[in-house]
């Protein structure tokens, strides 16, 4: 976006007071994430999208093939940020349906019945695929937003058939409170000629500031309480507990920033099994 392009990069560290991070801090936090959670890795960008304030081989963080078995609306409840008082700005997220609920453009797909089904050629040695019809998969990306000086999440989802989901389908995997207000369809900052669903970062700094305060406050393990219905407890089987203890006893370090950020994102996309990656310690 033009705003991203025009905003100069700042290198002053302010993360504890503002919740914002510099590009260097993003890299540090990304290195920590990739080391502790090997399902995440660094990736480079399409040639035309390389940004010079990040190392060429560390333009974006990615994790692939994260399962999602249930849609967000069946999992989540109301969301508040606790102390947060001002209302969310509405972004008028694009709808592909008009007032009647019909698609504004006829998407004429070819009916299955148009194709000739092949005979099941008595190959009884082939095991039938065991794919549940609601089993989706996501590739998740964490990029750096220069205008807001925070991470920015991009999602690329796949159907049970293993083919790309439409943005409308992907909205079903974001909790309603966020879906209507801060979810957009955009060209990612790191890849050419494709669009993805993104979570607008305008409130992330504030969220991170609140979450970090909770992490640092002694005796408060469930930092995402009030951020979403899902608590930290869902993810861990003991190992998660140890990790939070370690963080509680000292001020939060910037390298832990993205781990905390992902806990927040997990609460916004509760049906996407991020925590499956986090328990791989």
């Amino acid at each position: 976006s033009l705003r991203e392009y025009l905003t100069p990069v700042s290198n002053t560290s302010t993360f504890r007071t503002t919740g914002e991070i510099t590009p260097d801090e993003f890299v540090k936090a990304g290195d920590y994430l990739v080391e502790k959670f090997p399902t995440w890795s660094w990736a480079s960008a399409s040639k035309s999208k390389v940004r010079d304030f990040l190392p060429p081989d560390k333009q974006v963080l990615v994790t692939r093939h994260v399962p999602s078995h249930v849609r967000a609306s069946t999992v989540s409840g109301p969301v508040t940020l606790g102390e947060e008082e001002d209302g969310w700005t509405s972004f008028g997220v694009a709808n592909t349906k008009d007032a009647d609920g019909d698609d504004t453009e006829e998407i004429a797909e070819i009916a299955d019945s148009d194709f000739e089904e092949l005979d099941d050629d008595d190959d009884d040695a082939a095991e039938a695929p065991a794919t549940a019809t609601d089993h989706r998969t996501y590739n998740l990306y964490i990029a750096y937003s220069t205008s807001y000086r925070v991470p920015k999440m991009f999602l690329s989802g796949y159907s049970p058939e293993g083919s790309p989901l439409t943005p409308e389908d992907m909205f079903e995997d974001i909790i309603p409170e966020y879906r209507d207000k801060t979810v957009t369809i955009e060209r990612p900052t790191f890849q050419d000629n494709i669009t993805m669903v993104a979570i607008h970062p305008c409130k992330h700094a504030n969220v991170m500031r609140v979450l970090m305060e909770r992490v640092e406050a002694k005796g408060d393990k469930d930092i995402t309480r009030g951020v979403a219905k899902l608590g930290v407890a869902d993810a861990d089987d003991g190992e998660g507990e140890e990790e939070w203890e370690e963080v509680e006893n000292s001020a939060m370090r910037v390298d832990q920033y993205l781990v905390t950020f992902l806990k927040f994102i997990a609460s916004v996309t509760p049906g996407i099994e991020h925590d499956y990656t986090m328990s791989a310690l």
Partner: peptide, 21 residues
């Protein structure tokens, strides 16, 4: 043999609409 069955277990091709993307 070896054509992939779709998630409904049928020997039919798959399709995807990438218009929105």
């Amino acid at each position: 043999t070896g054509w992939e069955k779709n998630s409904a277990g049928k020997l039919l091709p798959k399709q995807t609409n990438l218009g929105p993307l």
